[in-house]
Design a protein around this nucleic acid. Sequence first.
DNA 1: TGTTTATTTAGCCATATTGCTAACCAGATT
DNA 2: AATCTGGTTAGCAATATGGCTAAATAAACA
Lengths: 90, 90
Amino acid sequence: MKALAHPTRMFIVDELSRGERCVCELTEMIGVEMPTVSRHLSILKKAGLVRDDKRGLKIFYQLRVPCCLSFLKCVESVLQADEAEACRAA
Amino acid sequence: MKALAHPTRMFIVDELSRGERCVCELTEMIGVEMPTVSRHLSILKKAGLVRDDKRGLKIFYQLRVPCCLSFLKCVESVLQADEAEACRAA
DNA sequence: TGTTTATTTAGCCATATTGCTAACCAGATT
DNA sequence: AATCTGGTTAGCAATATGGCTAAATAAACA
């Protein structure tokens, strides 16, 4: 649960929901040092939310629990709409 | 998001999903001092997840975003089953 | 009015989290 | 073998979190 409780990690999960990404891509998007991203990824990995796949020099991360996806949609709807509308959408 | 990232607050949300509860009830269930529970509740309230309703001396809290409910179910299914099964349920 | 009950606020301390930099590791390339 | 590239690990400082106790508040009651 706590694994999702950080904006950067939310961003990562959201981004991975659109396909696998390597650490360098995520680092560039997030605008923070790579070791920091790496640690966030290791937290997500320890929580079982993502999986890593080493190919050549790069390590690609992918979402492991599609459940996150439906949750993310819910969160987004809550953020976009007021709570009443969000609930209707859920 | 961070509002849900603590076992006590998860418990509170789960409990409130079964109906409103006053602070003293929650305090007794959780087994921690009342000021602590109060602060958790204020965090949930600030996040817009719960609403409080003062009646007489007691203050009753209720879930405000039913969206939490479907999320909770998802989380529970993840916890109970392994990830493969959880995804099937989602 | 003074007291009791239910709750919140304030202040303190211990621990956890997050970011950074520096150092390390492992494949690929030369 | 030496080096480059993409990542991780380690260690540190700053900040946030979570628990406690003590003090403040507010409604009900004697």
